[in-house]
């Protein structure tokens, strides 16, 4: 198995945890793995991207443009911004949330409309209102876990292996609630 994944969002949304869980999935699957993340000034509310690569031998820590199998997006505009990394039959799992960037907040630019419809013309897009689901299961901070669950189901990663990887990076007091979130995402993913 060779998999190239981009996790994209806005600084502070918790993309790093998601990438670490994917890294653990690679290790548990006996694969080589590299992750690339951004620290520093660009994190302050800026656009952030984490690269995840797994396979028999991984060299570059970053994904080649046009070669990503998946983009897991925590925010819509970021999904669109990074979509050029996706390969032709690649998939976008996108959280249906808008976070306005500064040029939009200040009225200088407009947030693009119909992002999901636009992306669907070119890519296979799974859009999901993960915030509502997170609220439903009374764990508003579990958006990233739900998206990970969806990814694991789409990629047919064993549920128990995915759970084990996720729980390694979640504090014990949140194990139960995040297990529910992960299962919920996995169920949604299985339906696609």
């Amino acid at each position: 198995m060779n998999l190239d994944i981009l996790i994209v969002g806005v600084g502070g949304q918790g993309t790093l945890l998601a990438s670490r869980v994917l890294g653990e999935i690679a290790i548990l699957s006996g694969l080589d793995c590299k992750l690339n993340e951004i620290h520093g000034m660009s994190q302050r509310g800026g656009s952030v991207v984490t690269h995840v690569r797994m396979g028999d031998d991984v060299y570059s820590p970053t994904v080649l443009e046009g070669n990503a199998d998946y983009i897991i997006a925590f925010e819509k505009l970021e999904a669109l911004r990074w979509s050029y990394y996706l390969k032709e039959n690649g998939k976008i799992i996108v959280n249906d949330q808008e976070i306005l960037p500064m040029p939009v907040i200040s009225g200088k630019e407009k947030y693009p409309s119909n992002i999901i419809e636009h992306m669907k013309k070119t890519y296979s897009v799974l859009d999901i209102d993960a915030i509502s689901i997170a609220k439903e299961i009374k764990n508003p901070k579990s958006v990233n876990i739900i998206l990970l669950g969806i990814f694991c189901a789409l990629e047919k990663i064993d549920l128990d292996l995915g759970l084990k990887a996720m729980l390694k990076y979640v504090k014990p007091q949140f194990h139960q609630s995040n297990t529910i979130a992960f299962n919920k995402g996995y169920e949604i993913g299985k339906r696609y």
């Binding site: 806005v10 600084g11 000034m41 660009s42 994190q43 302050r44 509310g45 800026g46 656009s47 570059s60 970053t62 080649l64 443009e65 046009g66 505009l77 970021e78 669109l80 911004r81 979509s83 050029y84 990394y85 960037p101 500064m102 040029p103 939009v104 630019e109 407009k110 947030y111 693009p112």
Partner: peptide, 30 residues
């Protein structure tokens, strides 16, 4: 540099480019 930059600059391959018409999301003070 990157794998893509080497493919493009050295081997003359075409590499996907970002869409420049999207609003930027620059870092801001919190």
């Amino acid at each position: 540099l990157s794998t893509g930059a080497i493919l493009e600059k050295y081997l003359g391959k075409t590499i996907n480019k970002p869409n420049k018409n999207l609003p930027n999301r620059p870092p801001v003070m919190c």
